[in-house]
Every structure is written in structure tokens, then in C-alpha cells.
Design a protein around this nucleic acid. Structure first.
Lengths: 351, 351
DNA sequence: TGCCATGATTTGAACGATCAAATCACTGAT
DNA sequence: ATCAGTGATTTGATCGTTCAAATCATGGCA
């Protein structure tokens, strides 16, 4: 065999045996309509026989395209990646694959100033663009990327730039509204809300959904709200103030699963059994919610990843960004922490 | 400026302005000892000025090295990646960076038969080798990789091939022994063990550590063992059998945090408060353990990742594999589920 | 028969970096 | 003054693929 290196066949090896030019091999793989069927079949047989695969580095160099998207792993503080981000990473890897691309996970030395790492990856042609996650008000990344014409898409709204349309996010308001409906259907007369401090657009949106749904159900009570930072102990304290106000059968909708943990603790401390005496619903889902048997709203990470990867690779192909962003509905996952009535639509508890 | 493409400077651009050959630019970056200090400084100044970064694809192509390691994300069943694997991935990305390499996460279409994906990545020169994780008895990957001379290292013992030395793993026996000591120091008279069904080398090892330590403490009782598959409900049932046998102040050491969850549930169901009436210690640590306030043994993922990445990149450089594998000690993380006495060495609970 | 159009294929070069050998410049020894 | 050795640098080519233009072969029409 004419392979002058290891075990990898090159395009020249295939061309020699198939009796055609190297460019014809390339055409068979990339522009098959330019090749006669007979030639095509002959070439494909040799490719299969030799186990030929195009060298990724050669393609990247010639095309000046990395066929890869960077995703930063936010490991602030305890070097822990959130359950949602982990799931999103997995789904992105899967989605990228269908686009013949790959995901480059990276960590910034200084999370508050990630730009040098973004810059480095682009200059080295390691990535064609980025999928940014955990966007927030005042986030420096979008403007920085836009100024340099670096393609990017966003899991989460780009709150400082409403014109940026290449984003997808969970519809937080629809989610909490669904939770309220579920709880009311389960007999709750009061539904409280445990959220983050105001000023977080994501948190405010989830609160809005709760508000609308309680109003629609005729049980709105704006005083049934407490705030806490994303910390279980803090959330427990905040939730205690709500639990005190509730009657048996009532409920708390939380802006996240971590906050829901606080609510569960507060309820138990007050002698209430979640799922029997009261209900608690979280937001996000993940191994934690599953292990706790927590009723929660599952982030639509698969749908979001598929959409974003498609848009990002399209940007690389010269496509236009979408006309507007995309909201995806979370799925209510009913487990043990919410009281429910015997309806066929319930389920999904770990039993 | 002579950049004929976008914003990226090439080695020729730098060479032109610095007034040296392209090879000298390369030498300054890769073999600086071959260049006079004055020339070196001049070149570095131009590199800095132009923001030049070597094109990764060009390097990969010329050197026939991807400078990347593949890590498969096991998403069997519910497409969930374990907390340990997630943490390991992050640490690997960090470790790879210090070796000027990157991590390529991938998912196999069929987890029971991942070989085609491994094959594809190698043929496309996307990776130089692999870090395999979650090794198990009968695992097909090691032999397959070895037969093809594909470099790989392993997080976990390669149970079917004792000759393979490029591995690192947690010292499970030392971990559970440490847990027993901690519990005995906290006043436990009996320490039970909740593990996986026999036949799992990892599980058997953790059990061995418990056995040795209880014997050394003079409280060994082989009947204080129950087994369960890695499922919280199953673990709860199994743990109930142990809880019944324990007196106030006694403890259960578990082979994993998931099993520990079952033990916590069983204890509570029996009217015991973990951390006050009894103790429960898990194994692995992660967001789940943290949220639960679980005392557990933290996997030394950082140490393992650093070791494995160093070995893997060394293999690529032609280095020999290490003389033997490496066991790393887990760290006992004392939180709320274990009774402890007022000793200075305790702490680390989330308070 | 000759010319033109078109599908199919080939040829030549490029992408940006590094390998490996050749060349240059300088110094010290004879 | 010449030669040999050595550090510093350059030259020529390569890596494996795709871009873009050129060429070839064939069929249809005047």
C-alpha cells in the first residue's frame, strides 16, 4: 500500500487506486453531482476499502474554517459546571456532529475577563465562532465579539443588545405559569414565589409568569414573594417566611432547583411534608432534582442546542442570522414534591 | 498591512516586518535557543504588535499531530453525564491547556460499540489519543486501542489488562478506610457498608477498605453489609436493612453518593436524623452531595486529570508510559451527615 | 465536416506552518 | 593567510486537502 505514514490513507492513495485525480476524490465527497455515477461508485468502493477519511487539519487549512464552535465552561468559584451547562454541552456536541463540526470547550484564566482566550482561539483558527452561555446584564462578551466580527450565538437573551437575534432561551414565564396551573389543578389555594433579587432579567421573567398565572386563577397575592441569592441556606431562610403564610395544600414555585431545595428544607422544618402537605416546584431539572424527587421545569437544552448549532454553522456558511430569537418551552416534570390529583397527565416520578 | 485575509497575521507577515525568514519566526517560538537574543526580541516585538498566533491547522498538518485528546461523554440512558465525569472534563481541559493541547469531547452513536467513533477521530487526525473513563471489566476499548497502536490513558484501572500502566484512579480502599476512622472518632460503635453487587472491582475495593478499617478498630462485623445497584430507591431498601441493626451514634459508609442518598432516606424513615442520631458517608462528592450537606469522599479529579494529560501528551512525544499506574487519595469532606466530635480537623460543612 | 456547448475530469497552485538540509558569517588555530 | 568549526539563519520542500482554471471528450446543430 502507498501509505507513507502510519495507517492513514490519503486522498492521493485513493486517487491512485481508483485511477482518477485527487480532485475527483474530493468531488465525490463534497460535490457528488459533478461526478458520473459509475466513477462515483468506483471511488466510494476504494474509499471504503482503504478506510480513507479526509484529514481535518488539511481541510481546515485549505478552507480557512475550523468547523468548530467554542463553548466556555464557567467554573467560577468551586470549578463546578452547572447541570444545565453540562447537559447543554452534551447536546451541543451531538448537534455539532450532524453539521460535521465539533465543539471546543475552553476555560478562561479569568472568568471576569475572558476576552484574551476568545481572541486566542480565533487567531489560532481553532474555532469559527462561539456559543456563549449564562448571559447577563452588562455581559462584556457580545459587544466585544460583534466589534471584531466574530460570529456568535447565545444560549440566553443578549440583554444589552436587543438587535442580536441569534439566541435561544427557555421561556421562563411560560414555565412558571405552567407550574402554577399544575399546582392549582392539584388543589393549591395559594401559590407563593421564591426568586432571585430583582434586576435579574431571567428571574424577573420567571416571576412574571407566576404572577400572570396566579392572576388568571384568581389567586394573585403580590405579598407571597421572597427573594434569595442562589444559595441553599439563604433560600431556606427566605422560604421560611413563605411557608409560615401557607395553608396545607398550598405551594411554592421557585426560580431554580437550588432555591427549591431551600423551600423543601423550610417546609420540612415547619413540619410539612412536600408532596403531601404542600408543594414545591423548581426550575431547570438535572441530577439534583432527580435525586430529590423534585417536581420541576426541565430546560429544553436539546432543542436550544440544535437551534444554536444550526444557526452558528449557518453563519459560518454565510447565511443570515435568524429574523428573531427563539424561546423554547420547558417541560413540567412531575415528581414527588407536588401534590397532584389522579389525572392521566401526571407522572414521571422516580418510583 | 500584508494580511490578505481577515484579521489574522501569518508567519510571513511577521517575517517580512521583522526582516528575517519564516523559519526564524518559527524558531523563536519553538526553539528559541537557536536564535540570538537581539533577533529574538525583535521578532517577539513584531509578533506582539501584529497579534500573531500560529495557525493550529497548519501546525497539525505539518507535524501530523492534532495536539488533542478525545474524551467520550457517556450519556447512556438519560443523556446525563455524571458529576465526576463533568468535573474530570473540566480539569482535563485545564490540564491540557498547560500542555498546549485541547480536549475533544465526543459522543458515540452506540455506547456499547464506540469503536467507529474512536476510529473516525483518529483517521481524521482530530486527536492523537484518548483518555478513556468509566472503565469496567470486559471493556472492549483498551484491547481495541492497543491493537491499533492508538495511544490512550485511563481514568480507572484497565481491569482486563494489568500490564497497562497509563492509568490513574482514586484509592477507593484508602477512602472508605478514612471514612471509617472519621466515624469511629465520632463515636460510632458499629459501621455498616452499603455497596454495589459483588463483581464490580471498584465496589469491591471500597468495601475492602471499610473491612480493613473496621477490623483495625476492633469493630468488624461482616454481616453489616448490604448491596444495591446504583439506584436511590433500591439503595433505600437495602439501607433499611442496615439501619434496623444500628444503634444511635452508629454509621453507614456507602460506595457512592447515590447509595448514600438511599441510606439518608432509610435513616430518616426510621426516625433517625443523620448527623445527630447516626452518620452517613458517601463517595465521589459533587453538586448533589454539596446540596445535601452529605459527608463524603471527594474524587481527586484534578490530580488525576493532570497526571493523565501529562502522560498522554508524553506518549505523543514518544515518551514511555509510566512504570506503573497511579492511585490518588480522595479527600474526606465533612458536612452535616456525620456525627463529629469537637476536633480541629473537622470542618468544611456548608454553613 | 466543423464548430460550439456542456458535462466530466484534470492540472496547477494555494492554505500556513515546520522539517531538514544548505548556506552564511565569524572566530580561533595553524 | 587559510582552513575548520560552530552558531545563526535561510532555502527548498513538505504536510493533505480544496479552490479555480484549464483541458478533454462527446453530442448536437448548421
Amino acid at each position: 500500500m502507498d501509505r507513507q505514514h502510519g495507517t492513514r490513507a490519503t486522498i492521493s492513495d485513493v486517487a491512485r487506486v481508483a485511477g482518477v485525480s485527487r480532485q475527483t476524490i474530493s468531488n465525490v465527497l463534497n460535490n457528488p453531482e459533478r461526478v458520473r455515477p459509475e466513477t462515483r461508485e468506483r471511488v466510494l468502493a476504494v474509499i471504503d476499502e482503504q478506510g480513507y477519511r479526509p484529514n481535518a487539519a488539511a481541510k481546515q487549512l485549505r478552507q480557512r474554517r475550523a468547523h468548530a464552535l467554542g463553548i466556555e465552561l464557567d467554573v467560577t468559584g468551586n470549578r463546578r459546571v452547572s447541570g444545565v451547562l453540562t447537559a447543554f454541552l452534551v447536546e451541543s456536541v451531538l448537534a455539532a456532529r450532524t453539521h460535521r463540526a465539533s465543539i471546543v470547550p475552553f476555560v478562561s484564566a479569568d472568568h471576569e475577563r475572558p476576552e484574551p482566550e476568545f481572541d486566542d482561539l480565533v487567531r489560532r483558527q481553532m474555532v469559527d465562532g462561539f456559543i456563549i452561555v449564562d448571559t447577563r446584564l452588562g455581559d462584556p462578551r457580545p459587544a466585544w465579539l460583534r466589534e471584531r466580527g466574530i460570529p456568535f450565538v447565545s444560549f440566553g437573551r443578549v440583554w444589552d443588545d436587543p438587535e442580536h437575534t441569534a439566541w435561544a432561551d427557555v421561556d421562563g414565564a411560560a414555565g412558571t405559569a405552567t407550574a402554577v396551573e399544575h399546582l392549582v389543578a392539584g388543589g393549591a389555594h395559594q401559590v407563593a414565589f421564591l426568586g432571585w433579587p430583582s434586576g435579574s432579567p431571567t428571574g424577573d421573567e420567571r416571576r412574571l409568569g407566576w404572577q400572570r398565572a396566579t392572576r388568571a386563577a384568581g389567586i394573585e397575592d403580590p405579598s407571597l414573594v421572597q427573594e434569595s441569592v442562589q444559595d441553599v441556606s439563604e433560600a431556606t431562610l427566605a422560604a421560611a417566611g413563605l411557608v409560615r403564610r401557607l395553608n396545607p395544600g398550598d405551594a411554592i414555585v421557585c426560580a431554580s432547583d437550588e432555591l427549591a431545595m431551600g423551600a423543601l428544607r423550610a417546609a420540612r422544618a415547619a413540619g410539612l411534608t412536600p408532596g403531601l402537605d404542600c408543594s414545591v416546584v423548581g426550575f431547570d431539572d438535572g441530577p439534583l432534582a432527580e435525586a430529590l424527587g423534585l417536581t420541576t421545569l426541565r430546560q429544553p437544552v436539546s432543542e436550544i442546542a440544535q437551534h444554536l448549532v444550526a444557526v452558528a454553522t449557518g453563519l459560518g456558511d454565510g447565511d443570515d442570522p435568524p429574523a428573531h430569537g427563539r424561546l423554547a418551552l420547558p417541560t413540567l416534570i412531575v415528581r414527588a414534591t407536588s401534590i397532584r390529583r389522579a389525572t392521566p397527565e401526571e407522572e414521571e416520578g422516580r418510583s
